[in-house]
Amino acid sequence: MHPQGYVTDAVQLQGMGYGGLPGQPGVVQHTAVNITRGQPVITEPPKDHIIWSLLCFVYSNPFCLGLAALIYSIKARDRKVVGDVDGARHYGSTARSLNITATIIAAIGFFIFIITISVIMAQAASHYNYRY
């Protein structure tokens, strides 16, 4: 057993040795399989969602939620650079929630706009075709 907690098993591969025929004695190839057990040693750094916040700020900024998400994303990135992982995770999750809310509100508004334009165009076309 290795000091890091890895389990190593040697498994013989079937095949040809160097220059030999299959099944003949020669150089035997081995492979090692590392199996880790327990919690991972390295954790993933917290996400700051800055690209999503920029897109929400530029393209859909309902009720200034995109701006607030951008501010929290910048704070999360600053906390991550300083080394405050818990603060970065908190600001990043707040930015994510604001981005989700801004995206949903913008999508609903876009669909309402498309439906309204479609209804107005259909009524205008039916009124235009009406003969007196």
Score class of each variant (00 low, 15 high):
G17R: 02
M16A: 13
N129C: 09
A10I: 00
I50Y: 14
C64R: 03
I74L: 15
A106C: 08
I108P: 00
C56P: 00
Q14N: 07
I117E: 14
P22Q: 03
V82H: 11
H49E: 10
V33G: 00
R77L: 13
Y59H: 14
T8F: 02
G5V: 07
L65Y: 08
P46R: 06
D48L: 11
F111Q: 00
V81A: 15
V81H: 10
W52I: 01
P45S: 13
S53F: 01
V33P: 00
M1G: 06
Q14L: 07
R131G: 00
I50A: 14
G87Y: 03
H49L: 03
A68N: 04
I100T: 04
L55Y: 13
G38Y: 00
F110M: 05
H90N: 08
A106I: 06
F113D: 04
P25S: 10
T116M: 11
L13I: 04
H90F: 13
P25D: 11
R131V: 09
L13R: 02
I35Q: 06
G17E: 01
R77I: 15
P40K: 03
A95H: 07
R37N: 04
M121G: 05
I117A: 15
I74E: 14
Y6S: 02
P22I: 10
V58W: 09
S97I: 08
M16L: 06
A68P: 02
L98F: 08
T116E: 07
R89D: 14
V82M: 14
K75Y: 11
L67K: 01
S93A: 12
R79G: 09
L54H: 08
R96V: 02
G20I: 07
M16Q: 12
F111A: 12
I120K: 04
Y6R: 12
V119D: 09
Y91Q: 10
G83H: 05
C64Y: 10
I100W: 01
C64N: 13
F57A: 11
T116R: 12
L98S: 03
R89K: 14
R79I: 01
A122Y: 07
V11R: 02
G92A: 10
W52L: 11
S93W: 09
S93Q: 15
R37F: 13
F57Q: 02
I115S: 12
P46E: 08
S73R: 02
I42M: 03
F113I: 06
Q123T: 10
T31L: 11
N129W: 15
F111C: 12
D78K: 13
T8W: 01
I35P: 00
S53H: 04
D9S: 02
G5W: 07
P25M: 01
C64Q: 12
A107H: 09
G92K: 13
M1F: 09
A95P: 01
I100N: 03
T94G: 04
F111T: 09
